[in-house]
């Protein structure tokens, strides 16, 4: 029987578009090492910010800003300025093979929507778990 992504879903931390990069980093930390934060406005998914996006937003070691200035900037810049707006979406019925294909092709993390409701996220970690499970069958 074809398994769908329901068994892989985990809760997604969410922030408003006006939340700051600092807020998004805090939401990601509190989720226990998730891959992305959903950006939600009026209960609708409007974007996604990944841990990679947040890392890329931070200045490099070549910055002339002090640590305090960087911290201040991260507490001011809204996530909507860096969020991915074209998020790949799937439904809970989507077969795991299909989700893995999208992730393999660099389309992830994948937001899982039931109607307009965001019910979870599928990223590399969830699909690596599936690699482990498949191998042990």
């Amino acid at each position: 029987m074809t398994r769908d992504v329901r068994s892989l879903l985990r809760p997604v931390p969410a922030v408003e578009p006006t939340a700051t990069l600092e807020d998004a980093e805090a939401a990601l930390r509190s989720s226990g090492g998730g891959e992305a934060v959903a950006v939600v406005h009026h209960d609708r998914l409007v974007g996604l910010v990944t841990a990679d996006d947040l890392a890329a937003a931070r200045p490099s070691a070549a910055t002339t800003l002090s640590i305090g200035e960087v911290r201040g900037a991260l507490a001011r810049i809204p996530v909507e300025s860096i969020m991915r707006r074209d998020v790949a979406t799937i439904v809970p019925d989507t077969p795991i093979a299909e989700a893995a294909r999208l992730m393999r092709d660099g389309r992830g993390p994948l937001a899982v929507l039931a109607g307009d409701d965001l019910v979870g996220l599928v990223g590399a970690a969830e699909l690596l778990s599936e690699v482990e499970r498949e191998e042990s069958r």
Binding site: D52, D53, A55, A56, A57, R58, P59, S60, A61, A62, T63, A73, I77, S81, I82
Partner: peptide, 8 residues
């Protein structure tokens, strides 16, 4: 990407 210049 993470170690390069900021995307902001």
């Amino acid at each position: 990407r993470a170690a390069g210049p900021s995307t902001v």
